[in-house]
Each structure stands twice: as structure tokens, then as C-alpha cells.
């Protein structure tokens, strides 16, 4: 009886460590495969986009489109749609270039794009509460970016004072109407226009 118990607990320990290995390995695999897929996917999506509208390299229109796509997805409580758009946005932020700017502006823009890319990467792989945190922070980076490179459409910076325990949070929208993206589909009408970003 005693030996049986020892054998059993030994088996348990061995089994446990084995599953740990398997688990660790699998996750690692997922990780690398995921990022490869990710690249392949955004590449093919890129190509598809190019095929459809012949737009060539990423433009600020692409950036704004995907940002607004994330905003709509979060407002609709759709983690998956937000992640999809964020994957594209990360790729665009990485590849876009603003050649017409002065060197000084260029370095500021590239540091903004770097941060936008990082926010997007987090939105692409996170749960919704974390997606929203990064999306909210990214609103400020987008505002700063557009102040330098100009917007291709009229945008509204909107703010809901209730976000983050009444600290308040902002986002950009292409419509004056409030559709709050910061409460995962709830509190839809909380917010007001704080600033208008004109075409420039």
C-alpha cells in the first residue's frame, strides 16, 4: 500500500513536470508561429489592400481608417474586430514614411509612430480592458501626430469624464455624435467634443 502511494505520487510529479514542459513548449511555439502568421497575414492583407485600391505604401488615411475601425469595434464590444484593425494599424505605423517633413519633425513623428505601433500591438493581443487602456492612451498620440502631419478629414476629439475612476479619457471620432468606445459597449453616450481637428 505504501509503495503504491509512493509510486503514485512519483508518477504525479513526473506527469506534472512533463505537462509543464509540453505546456511551455506549446506556448513558445504559439508565440513564434503567431508572430509569423501575423506578419504573413498583415503582408497578405497589405497586398490585398493594394490590389483593391492601388494605394502603394501606407498613407495617413490608412492610419486614421484603422484607428477609427478600432474605435468602432471597442464601442461595439468586439475584441476581435479591434484586434484585427490594430494588427493592420501596427503594420502601417511601422512602414509609413513622411518624407516631406523637416528632419526635426521627422524624428518627432517617428517617435510618435513607434508608440502608436506599440499601442496597436498590445490592442492586437489583449483582453478588452487592456485594449481600451492602450486605445485611450493612443488617442493623445494620434492627436499629436495629426497636429504635425495634418488630418485628411475633419475629426473630433471627444472626452468622457467618467473614464478611469473619473480621471477622464479621450478618443477621436469622424462624427460629432458620441459613441463612447471606453466602456466596452456601455455608457455609449457619455462624452462631449473637446476639440475639432480640421483638415490640414
Amino acid at each position: 500500500m505504501k509503495t503504491q502511494k509512493t509510486i503514485l505520487s512519483l508518477a504525479l510529479i513526473a506527469g506534472l513536470s512533463f505537462s509543464l514542459i509540453a505546456c511551455g513548449e506549446k506556448k513558445q511555439e504559439d508565440h513564434t508561429m503567431g508572430s509569423e502568421d501575423h506578419n504573413a497575414m498583415s503582408e497578405s492583407m497589405d497586398n490585398m489592400d493594394k490590389g483593391m485600391d492601388m494605394s502603394g505604401p501606407a498613407t495617413k488615411t490608412d492610419l486614421i481608417d484603422e484607428y477609427l475601425e478600432i474605435k468602432t469595434a471597442l464601442g461595439n464590444n468586439s475584441k476581435e474586430e479591434a484586434a484585427k484593425a490594430a494588427t493592420k494599424l501596427a503594420e502601417y505605423a511601422k512602414t509609413i514614411s513622411f518624407d516631406q517633413l523637416t528632419d526635426e519633425k521627422k524624428s518627432e513623428v517617428s517617435s510618435i509612430l513607434e508608440v502608436i505601433q506599440e499601442h496597436s500591438e498590445h490592442i492586437a493581443k489583449s483582453e478588452m480592458d487592456h485594449q481600451i487602456e492602450h486605445f485611450e492612451a493612443m488617442g493623445k498620440d494620434f492627436t499629436d501626430l495629426l497636429a504635425i502631419v495634418g488630418s485628411d478629414r475633419k475629426l473630433y476629439q471627444q472626452q468622457c469624464p467618467m473614464y478611469n475612476k473619473n480621471e477622464g479619457g479621450i478618443w477621436l471620432s469622424d462624427s460629432e455624435e458620441i459613441k463612447n468606445p471606453l466602456f466596452a459597449g456601455k455608457m455609449k453616450t457619455c462624452g462631449a467634443v473637446k476639440q475639432v481637428i480640421e483638415i490640414g
Binding site: I7, L8, A11, F18
Partner: peptide, 13 residues
Amino acid sequence: VVGVIITLLLIVL
């Protein structure tokens, strides 16, 4: 059977 399984797991470990 248990013995074989344990031996195998030990070898892997």
C-alpha cells in the same frame, strides 16, 4: 504498466 510509465517519465525528466 505503472512501473513502465514511471520509468519512461524518469528517462524523459
